[in-house]
């Protein structure tokens, strides 16, 4: 906090700043590196422990490098988690696509083809994004039973799609709000109806918003634990459930748990690495919002 708080000498011209800025920059980079290390610390422990033998992987030796690098932990974790990974993909992908498409249509309507009370409707939809799901969980369990949605992947697809709608609607609405009305009008003049306008004008320019929305939905459904806990189990549920059972088992198999945590995080990390630029870029340019 103190680096820039030093009253810098007259800021008017470059030369005065040089020696102060050398000090400032040193402190600045020092801090950045320090935080970098702090952030990476848990990742380091995860990484090295996952390669340790069972005896070597104890909390008291958390900071040491493995006495002997071996892949057994990874193999055991993979055996436990791989079926769950498949299930998680088969749950997350449809849920993300469905909620993204429905959200984009909603966003279109709410921003460009409005009806009276659209703002109120939007606000009511938005509320759904913030509710703690605990406040609907008990009747939700009963409702899903009444609808006889099988537990596991089908239930979770339904839930992640539905409870994803507020946020996808919001993002698309804000995105479409930035689209000039002239485009819509031009389509209208050509006699295009609402759906045609959506498909021919909006969809083609929606890619950036889809990237952001799909990324969010993918990540949040992948990382979800609450719905998974209530609506699935370790035999038909996603990887968060299996991982937690792996990690809280009685014979605490630390190397396998740590390898499992890494395995379970790979898909979302890959998404971030590949698409993070769009996300951060979108955030920074403010282009996602209206």
């Amino acid at each position: 906090m103190t680096t820039e708080a030093l009253p810098a000498p007259v800021q008017a011209s470059r030369p005065a700043g040089t020696h102060a800025s050398v000090a400032t920059r040193t402190v600045k980079y020092g801090l950045l590196l320090l935080f970098l290390l702090l952030i990476l610390m848990p990742a380091y422990v995860l990484f090295v422990t996952s390669f340790k033998t069972i005896g070597d992987a104890t909390p008291s030796r958390a900071w040491n490098l493995p006495a002997e690098w071996q892949l057994d932990g990874w193999r055991r974790a993979w055996e436990t988690l791989s079926p769950a990974l498949v299930r998680t993909f088969s749950m997350v992908i449809p849920a993300a696509l469905l909620s993204a498409f429905i959200g984009s249509m909603n966003g279109f309507v709410l921003s460009k083809w409005r009806f009276p009370g659209a703002d109120l409707v939007f606000t009511l939809i938005l509320f759904g994004m913030f509710i703690p799901y605990q406040a609907v969980m008990i009747p939700l369990v009963q409702l899903m039973q009444a609808l006889s949605v099988p537990s596991g992947v089908p239930s979770l697809i339904v839930l992640h799609t539905i409870y994803g709608l507020p946020i996808t609607t919001l993002i698309f609405r804000n995105y479409y709000a930035g689209v000039p009305h002239e485009l819509i009008e031009a389509a209208r003049v050509d006699g295009a109806g609402m759906l045609r306008t959506y498909a021919s004008v909006m969809l083609p320019i929606s890619m950036p918003a889809f990237v952001v929305v799909l990324m969010w939905q993918f990540t949040s459904a992948w990382n979800d634990y609450l719905f998974a806990l209530f609506f699935s189990n370790s035999r038909n549920g996603p990887v968060t459930i299996s991982l937690n059972f792996l990690a809280s088992g009685q014979l605490q198999d630390y190397s396998a748990s740590m390898a499992g945590a890494l395995i379970a995080s790979v898909p979302t990390l890959v998404v971030y690495i590949l698409l993070g630029r769009y996300f951060v870029g979108g955030l920074m340019a403010g282009s996602v919002k209206g």
Binding site: P42, V45, L46, T49, W222, N223, D224, Y225, T240, L243, N244, A247, S257, M258, G260, A261, L262, A264, S265, T268
Partner: peptide, 8 residues
């Protein structure tokens, strides 16, 4: 996920 980071 919190579950994965919770492990470490």
């Amino acid at each position: 996920s919190f579950i994965a980071s919770g492990v470490v």
